[in-house]
């Protein structure tokens, strides 16, 4: 254990090229997934919060339930869709980083959408009468609410990022864990642990935790500053 830790420390300190490549790909994949999922989830969450339509409650329950979507299941479904015989097989995306982005986007979209829905709905309860009095409803109202709670939405987006960067099942299945192509932090940790290369696995684990900590600290500071400024 001590040996592994010191090995991890020297790997990180030396800026090992292989390690950096893996970290960079992980960030690229997960941040892309967060970007696309946020783009889709914010309007979905806001619409479900503000609009009234039949089946709305069922949709809310579904969104909340999908927050716990097992990554391996998402991976399997995306695998089937993208495999050569699948409906999207012609694009040849399987075992490429874009396939990993697709899988993670699907995985975290419900998380960001459900948390956005809750936040927007709370704001809507507070603002509804005032906005309607000013003649603002529908899409403009939803946009106004999203903008007004923009700093609270950081938490929802971070929850998505946390999930994306921590999961291993989906990227393993659709990425294939190919060395130098689709190998990311979590899949490397899984592989190297089973192979017995504990220093690399451990150093990736440390980097992963540090990155998540760093992002959360940054988001916390931004939120605090906004709270002081805007109330």
């Amino acid at each position: 254990m001590i040996e592994a830790l010191s090995g991890a420390a020297s790997l990180i300190a030396s800026g090992d090229a292989k390690l950096l490549d893996i970290v960079a790909l992980s960030l690229k994949v997960s941040l892309s997934a967060v970007f696309f999922a946020t783009l889709l989830a914010l309007p979905i969450g806001a619409a479900v919060a503000v609009a009234r339509f039949p089946g709305r409650h069922a949709l809310i329950v579904l969104l909340n339930a999908l927050m716990g979507l097992p990554p391996v299941v998402v991976g399997l479904v995306v695998y089937l869709l993208l495999s050569r015989a699948g409906p999207l097989g012609q694009f040849g995306l399987l075992f490429t980083p874009p396939a990993m982005v697709v899988a993670q986007t699907i995985l975290i979209l419900p998380i960001i959408a459900a948390l956005t829905r809750q936040a927007v709905e709370d704001a809507w309860l507070e603002y509804q009468e005032q906005l309607r009095s000013l003649g603002v409803s529908g899409v403009p109202a939803a946009m106004t609410l999203l903008w007004d709670i923009r700093y609270s939405l950081l938490t929802a987006i971070l929850a998505g990022l946390g999930r994306a960067s921590a999961e291993v099942g989906a990227v393993m299945i659709v990425g294939g864990n190919i060395d130098g192509v689709t190998r990311v932090m979590t899949t490397t940790i899984a592989l190297e642990t089973s192979k017995g290369d504990l220093p690399l696995a451990l150093s990736l684990g440390v980097v992963l935790i540090l990155l998540v900590l760093l992002l959360n600290a940054a988001a916390f500071l931004v939120k605090e500053a906004a709270q002081r400024k805007y109330g």
Partner: peptide, 12 residues
């Protein structure tokens, strides 16, 4: 126009 008991202000 209407003014409510508790004013609702946007974060701006």
């Amino acid at each position: 126009a209407m003014v409510f008991q508790r004013p609702v202000m946007l974060r701006r």
